[in-house]
Design a protein around this nucleic acid. Sequence first.
DNA 1: GTAGTCATGTAAGACGTTACATGATTCT
DNA 2: AGAATCATGTAACGTCTTACATGACTAC
Lengths: 180, 180
Amino acid sequence: MSLKYAILGFLEMSPLSGYDIKKMFDASVQFYWPATHSQIYRTLDQILGEGLVTQEIVYQTGSPNKKVYQITEEGKRDLRAWLTTSQELPTIRHKLLVQVGLADQLSNEEIISLLRDYVAEINVRLKKYRDQEQMSVVSNYARTERERFLWHTVLLNGINLYEAELKWATEAIQGLQQFE
Amino acid sequence: MSLKYAILGFLEMSPLSGYDIKKMFDASVQFYWPATHSQIYRTLDQILGEGLVTQEIVYQTGSPNKKVYQITEEGKRDLRAWLTTSQELPTIRHKLLVQVGLADQLSNEEIISLLRDYVAEINVRLKKYRDQEQMSVVSNYARTERERFLWHTVLLNGINLYEAELKWATEAIQGLQQFE
DNA sequence: GTAGTCATGTAAGACGTTACATGATTCT
DNA sequence: AGAATCATGTAACGTCTTACATGACTAC
């Protein structure tokens, strides 16, 4: 149930509709906490039931009506409690590693092809991270210098991680060549 | 459905019971593809129905009877097809990063405490990886030099990854100190 | 005696993905 | 004419986790 807290975290900055929240996910936490709109709408219903948010229907002409959510005092307390609780290490389900571990029945070319595809996808991902860094999507929301620093720290994590993967993959390709 | 292929991969090395498979998961892929026994038994039932494995009941005295599974030709074909298919980048759901992104409402001490706990858990994890490297659990199963290399490559991935995380976390702690 | 290993399973619930469904407005 | 944006939702399905359930044997 971290989706719940990510949503509460955004609502703590300002009241938002489900649609707005989805956009904020895509513009920021997308890569380390993806969420679909169905998930978001369901979770909003749930936390509304728990009294962590209130809902206000905004009638619009030209665009569809929307439901704007606001965090309650109870929601803030709940969020704060979660934010100060240490979490367990993330579990990564890494298909490529499963493949590499079982790959002795493949040819070198086949394994290298898997690794090269991985490298290519990582480069795409890294570019997205660097674009985010440039555009500073997040700066629009960040209210303090410290908050900007925190978001930047989060971004750096992704860049570091994928650079480490890149290094690993190229070394693996090189190492494989001894089995020609 | 990668669990299915991880299981087929193990069965490709030798016939095994569900219990054996669970032990092999824990001794090798544990950190990048965890699985519980309920998941494994259900998946075995499923792939038995698909004709990818055959089942033989081994009656024992002293220990409970067991069901030993063997991969079929169809299973081997299916496995091979999956092994040569490029997978999408793994999605990591990283709670700590969600917390850090929303952490501006916390004090420096509170954030640093989160990061320190993270560092501590990573050190535990790294130790497990290094033990695996020493004990070479996998060497017992590896039939060729190349297979040993592949398993080692997989292990290295984890070590690289967590070392990158360690570096990131210590830098984050340092960076935070400018907001005293 | 009590904890651990061997060995299997079921059931409920939490969480996530994909597809289906609608409909006005605006931009190209 | 077609695509994108705004805006919400439901339903089915797939996957994963946790708890419940049993029972003999072995080692301390």
